[in-house]
Write a protein that binds this DNA or RNA. Structure first.
Lengths: 190, 190
DNA sequence: AATTATGTACCGATCGTTCGGTACATAGTG
DNA sequence: CACTATGTACCGAACGATCGGTACATAATT
C-alpha cells in the first residue's frame, strides 16, 4: 500500500456522500457548502469532480440509483430461485439500501420537490424500471400482465409509503411492516 | 358586493396559496419571491400576514393540515354510518385534498426534507393523528387494537406511496389504486 | 384618528459558480 | 540524467444573484 491513496478520498466515496446528502436533504436542501463540509473537500474542489456543478451531482446520484435498480432487476428475475426466496433477496437489498427505513429515497424526494426537467424525467424512468423489476416477482401462471402491474405498483407504493412514515416517526417499524405486507402479497401469487 | 374584496385577496386564500406552494415545492424549494409572485402580494405584504416569516408560513400551513385531520377524524368516527361508507367518505375527502393525486402532501415533504425541529415535531404529531383517525375505520369486534394500528399504518403508507408514485408519473392512477386497496382492506375487517 | 394593508428601498448572509493558483505525480524529450 | 510539459487533485478568494428579513413612508379602511 502506497502512502498516496491512504489519505485521500476516492471518487466513488465522494459520490456516495453526495447521493446520501441528496437523499437526506432533498435537492433544494442540498447546498454546495454542506457537500463541502461532509466530503471534507473545499468548495472549489467539488467542481473538479462534478464539472457541471449541482446538476451533475444530482445526475450522478441517479446513476447510483440506476445501478441499484439493475441489481434488483437481476435478483427479482433470477428464475433459478423460487419466487418467495427471490422476494426475500430483494427485501434484503432494500433493507440495506434504505438502512432499515432510516434513509430516504432519492426518487421520492426528486418526485415531490420541484426539480429541473432533466432530473424529473430520469426520475420517472427509474420508477418505471423499478416497477418492471417488481413484475418479475409475479408467477405468469398465476396472474396476467395487468395483475402483475397492479402488484408492482402495490409493492413500490408500499415501500415508498413505509419510507415516508418511517422518516416521519424516526422509526423503521413502518418500513418493516411495508416489507412484510409485500411479502404476503408475493406468497398470494405464487 | 363592495369594491373591496373584489380586487384584493382574502387572508384564508393567501394561506391556501402558501400551503399549496409548500406542498408542490417543499420547504427549501419555497422561496419568498415565489410566494410573492403566486399570491400577487409584495414582499412586505407577505410579512404583514406572516409576521415571523417563512417559519410562520410553514406552521400555519400545518394548521390547515390539522384542520383537515380533524375533519377526517370526525368522518371516520361517525358511527351512525356503516364502516365501508365511512371509508368512502374519507376517500372522497382525500381525493379532493390531494386533487386526485396530483398535489403532494405537506407532511410527506416536511418528513423527507431536513426541516427545522419545530416543524419536524409537529409533522410527526400530525401523522400520529392521521393514524389514530384511520383506526376508527376498524370494527372493534373484528380486530384488536394491534390489528387496528396495523391497518391504520397500511392505509397511511398506501396513500403516501400512491402520492409519491402519482407525482413521479404525473398520473393519478397509482393514487386511485392505493385508495382501492385500502377500500378492500376496510371491507375485510367489517 | 387609528388601524390595517401595501409599495419602495434596503440589509447582511448565503446561494451556486468561477477564478487564479499550488502541490505533486507521471510522461515525454534532449 | 536533467528538463519540460501534461494531468490530477485540491484550495482560498471572490463573483453576481438570490436568499430571508427589515425600515419606513404611503395609501386604504374603520
Amino acid at each position: 500500500m502506497s502512502a498516496l491513496d491512504n489519505d485521500q478520498k476516492r471518487q466513488p466515496d465522494i459520490l456516495q456522500d453526495v447521493a446520501r446528502i441528496f437523499r437526506a436533504n432533498g435537492f433544494h436542501g442540498t447546498t454546495i457548502s454542506v457537500v463541502s463540509e461532509r466530503t471534507g473537500l473545499g468548495k472549489s474542489s467539488i467542481y473538479h469532480h462534478f464539472g457541471r456543478g449541482k446538476s451533475e451531482m444530482a445526475q450522478r446520484s441517479l446513476d447510483v440509483v440506476a445501478t441499484f435498480m439493475e441489481a434488483m432487476e437481476a435478483t427479482a428475475g433470477d428464475t433459478s430461485v423460487p419466487t418467495s426466496a427471490r422476494w426475500e433477496a430483494v427485501a434484503k437489498m432494500l433493507r440495506e439500501y434504505y438502512e432499515n427505513g432510516q434513509l430516504g429515497c432519492l426518487l421520492a424526494v426528486f418526485s415531490l420537490e420541484d426539480v429541473p426537467d432533466e432530473l424529473r424525467a430520469r426520475t420517472k424512468l427509474l420508477f418505471d424500471r423499478w416497477l418492471a423489476a417488481m413484475t418479475l416477482l409475479c408467477n405468469p401462471d398465476q396472474c396476467d400482465e395487468a395483475d402483475a402491474q397492479r402488484f408492482a405498483r402495490h409493492a413500490v407504493m408500499m415501500i415508498q409509503g413505509g419510507l415516508v412514515l418511517s422518516r416521519a416517526q424516526s422509526s423503521g417499524d413502518a418500513f418493516e411492516q411495508a416489507l412484510a405486507e409485500v411479502a404476503s402479497a408475493v406468497s398470494d401469487r405464487s
